[in-house]
Design a protein around this nucleic acid. Structure first.
Length: 803
DNA sequence: ATACATACC
DNA sequence: TACTGGTATGTAT
């Protein structure tokens, strides 16, 4: 039976489950004993069975790959080799050693924070998380094999004295902000990867640093207090000049000089320390300041690109740093011995596949490139090639726009339909709340399900318009859920996790003026006098898009750089970060201020991002495995079923994709439609559109009394002395595509009113075309050639070469 | 576009 | 008492 792929590593058991001693703090421990315990704790569980299954899938992939490999001819290989070599030449040409990239990483972050705040823990093995899952562990615990992403109950078996402290994200976030303030002093554009980690480009700082007087490179030891520190923030507010002026933390003499950095160098009892002008010194200074400010230590890697810097920061892990000189020799030499698994982007599976091909280190990578280029996808082998040459991103860029937002929850088995629906609703509520915070709308709703056997499934639905409200999201999600439930009948879905995600955001680019205008237009309450209405229309007329008239939350204004400073979990040691809110704005705002030449001492809440500072809230809602209890949501299955007999997704949603007050303004007849039911509203619009010119007169609008005369309104509009107002009206009547959007793609063709000049029609057409083609995806600018993207080795690519 | 897998923190 | 949550990306269909 099964054999073959056992490969070099071939332990009998799951490589998926075995201890990952890849990282710092794990050297020289009893691997076998630990693995035995891990296995014994897991064997027979549903989780284990699923892991087994997945491992076999991977093995099959590998076997397939080996088959492909066996069929490769010498000739093909030679050809591939030539191609690779050509590529190498190009990549070499693009090699850029001129940047000093730094990767900073706090040591056992969460654990360190908890220990700082509870010194009792100092000498004990401890971890942060819960019995179900750990985010990180301290170095003491690591000696027992306790590590991040390990369930607490197994950790307890490995280390019975282990103390497990619950996570407190609010605290980590606060500390994170503190260190980010320091980061910003060295690179205002730094890129945070999580609460405790960031990439910085030190190049510019170093140039400036050369001319700095010693006083600017002098930093004091703190006295002792742990909890202060919020006071001297202002230092970093100063631009240029005093920018990094010696942060004389406390002028009071230190009565108890807290232990100086363990970095041997001249850090003894003095009240301050002078740092040199080299990168090493600058980075050491940064780490020093971090420690002084937070009592926590960080490690750093210095290298010509991010890929290597990342590896380097791990090299002297607790409280250390490592610099790789910016020469090709140093880089190549460093790379040679590097195990592929150390490279960010190469995980368990990729490692295993590479190992199966005899590739364990990056030197092998280089030697086998021709082969790899035939067995892996283009993106995958390109990435591998770059890795093998020691290439990586050489310029740090700020956070890009987010691409999705999701919420998921794990719980004890949930099999009852009503509970499943109400849970779904809850998730949608959460998600809608998050979407609102960032003013986002997305077109694709994805439902994620994991059954009690850990099998994961996702079902998606893409709408023709962006959604963001609970009702809209839930309309789609419950539909997806219902389908899955029905599919499984008569058996119930036995769920252990459910999640809802929104993606395919409608970007600000996509929101064409016309659409925006309509949206804002639709939102005007009937309070608007027609006078005011005209003014508004005037203001936002087509070309001029005064966003002023658009309700703030309809624009994805603060869309960037928010949230998503991921959590740290998993492969790394410390890991885990907080999902929900964006706590990053303040730092961001500050960074922006820093960059502004004319640092006018404005007050806080100004300019772009600053205003977002308001939210937050949340006290860690219990990360892991919390919600095992029943949900008292008011939403019952019966509710759900009854609520809308109409096709659920299109029902109760609309193009303007948001909850509207109580009355909507018809874009055709300008009448107020007093309803929140968008179906009703849509119907009204349909009527206006199809019958407008023929049967003028009275439209009984929806459920309430409101009646309006279309002709009258048109007249009113025409009477306006502003022609654009009239044009606008015509446009609205004509713009089929936009209205189509608005109605959620159920519209029927429009009969354009007869008496309309053709120019107007053309213009309307043009506009609608523009509106719909705004979908240009802007991929990354092809700037720095070795981009950090393109990770992951697709296995199946194998097929593509031979078939 | 959808589904699934891999990866990172 | 039993193995997370959030995001991005790649691959296949």
């Amino acid at each position: 039976m099964e054999k073959g792929v056992a490969s070099s590593k071939g332990e009998g058991f799951l490589s998926r489950m075995a201890l990952n001693d890849n990282k710092a703090g794990m050297e020289g421990l009893d691997r076998d004993r630990i693995n035995k315990i891990i296995m014994e704790s897991s064997k027979g569980s549903r989780f284990y069975e699923n892991e087994l299954k997945r491992e076999q899938q991977v093995n099959q992939r590998i076997e397939k790959m080996m088959l492909q490999k066996a069929q490769i001819t010498e000739q093909q290989l030679n050809k591939a080799q030539a191609q690779v070599e050509q590529m190498v030449v190009e990549l070499e040409r693009s090699r850029d050693l001129s940047h000093l990239i730094v990767h900073v990483d706090m040591d056992a972050f969460y654990a360190a924070v908890e220990t700082r705040d509870c010194p009792e823990l100092k000498d004990k093995p401890m971890a942060v998380g819960s019995m179900s899952m750990l985010s990180t562990s301290n170095y003491h615990a690591r000696k027992f094999g306790v590590r991040a992403a390990m369930p607490g109950f197994i950790a307890k078996k490995l280390c019975p004295n282990l103390i497990i402290v619950p996570t407190n994200f609010a605290k980590y976030r606060a500390v994170s902000e503190e260190i980010r303030e320091i980061f910003a002093d060295y690179d205002p554009q730094f890129q945070p990867m999580s609460l405790d980690e960031a990439y910085l480009d030190f190049t510019e700082h170093l140039e400036r640093r050369q001319s700095w007087p010693e006083s600017s490179r002098t930093h004091c030891f703190r006295t002792s207090s742990t909890t202060k520190g919020e006071d001297q923030m202002d230092v970093s507010l100063e631009p240029e000049q005093s920018d990094l002026s010696p942060v004389l933390f406390e002028d009071s003499p230190s009565s108890s000089p807290c232990s100086p950095g363990s970095e041997a160098d001249g850090a003894s009892g003095g009240a301050f320390e002078v740092f040199g002008t080299s990168v090493e010194e600058a980075v050491r200074e940064m780490r020093f300041r971090i420690e002084q400010k937070t009592t926590l230590t960080a490690s750093a890697g210095i290298a010509p690109n991010t890929m290597i810097a990342k590896v380097c920061s791990d090299k002297n892990k607790p409280n250390g740093q490592y610099r790789l000189p910016s020469t090709r020799e140093a880089v190549m030499d460093f790379i040679q011995r590097l195990p592929v698994r150390k490279v960010s982007g190469i995980g368990k599976v990729s490692e295993k596949m590479l190992n199966a091909l005899g590739v364990g280190s990056c030197s092998h990578l280089g030697q086998q490139m021709a082969l790899l280029s035939m067995l892996f996808s283009e993106t995958a082998w390109h990435h591998l090639l770059e890795v093998s040459l020691g290439l990586g991103s050489t310029h740090i860029q700020r956070q890009e726009e987010r691409k999705s937002m999701s919420t998921e929850r794990t719980f004890k088995e949930l099999s009852r339909v009503e509970e499943q629906f109400s849970l779904c609703k809850e998730l949608c509520e959460d998600l809608a709340g998050d979407m609102k915070k960032e003013g986002l709308k997305g077109k694709t709703v994805t439902l994620k399900l994991k059954n009690v056997n850990f099998e994961v499934k996702s079902r998606a639905l893409t709408l023709s318009y962006g959604v963001s409200t609970v009702d809209e999201i839930f309309a789609a999600a419950k539909d997806l859920l219902k389908t899955e439930i029905d599919n499984e009948l008569p058996l119930p879905l036995r769920l252990r996790l459910m999640g809802v995600r929104i993606s395919a955001f409608v970007s600000s680019d996509d929101k064409k003026p016309l659409q925006r205008s309509i949206i804002s237009f639709l939102q005007q309450g009937k309070a608007d006098s027609s006078q005011g209405m005209h003014q508004k229309l005037e203001k936002e007329h087509l070309i001029s898009h005064s966003s002023q008239t658009v309700p703030p939350d309809s624009l994805p204004s603060a869309q960037k750089c928010q949230r998503q400073e991921g959590v740290t979990w998993g492969r790394g040691l410390e890991t885990g970060e907080e999902p929900k809110q964006s706590f990053f704005q303040r730092a961001q705002a500050k960074r922006l201020r820093l960059q502004e030449e004319n640092a006018s001492t404005q007050e806080e809440g100004h300019g772009g991002n600053a205003s977002v500072t308001t939210f937050i809230g949340t006290d860690a809602e219990e990360g892991v495995g919390s919600s095992t209890k029943a949900h008292n949501s008011p939403c019952t299955a019966a509710d759900l079923q009854e609520k809308d007999p109409v096709p659920p997704v299109e029902a109760s949603t609309s193009g303007c994709g948001r909850t509207v007050s109580e009355s909507l303004t018809c874009p055709v007849c300008f009448g107020q439609v007093e309803t929140t039911d968008l179906n009703v509203f849509n119907k009204h619009i349909d009527q206006c559109l199809s019958g407008a010119s023929r049967k003028p007169n009275h439209y009984t609008i929806s459920d309430t009394e409101s009646e309006l005369d279309h002709k009258e309104l048109c007249q009113l509009t025409q009477d306006s002395d502003d022609l654009t107002v009239f044009n606008r009206h015509v446009d609205l009547c004509l713009n089929q595509e936009v209205l189509h959007e608005l109605r959620g793609h159920t519209s029927s063709p429009i009969n354009p009113p007869s008496a309309i000049n053709s120019k107007a029609i053309d213009r309307a057409r043009l506009l609608s075309t523009q509106a719909s083609k705004g979908k240009t995806k802007r991929r990354d600018s092809p700037s720095s050639p070795p981009s950090k993207k393109a990770k992951g080795l697709g296995p199946h690519t194998i097929d593509k070469f031979f078939r």
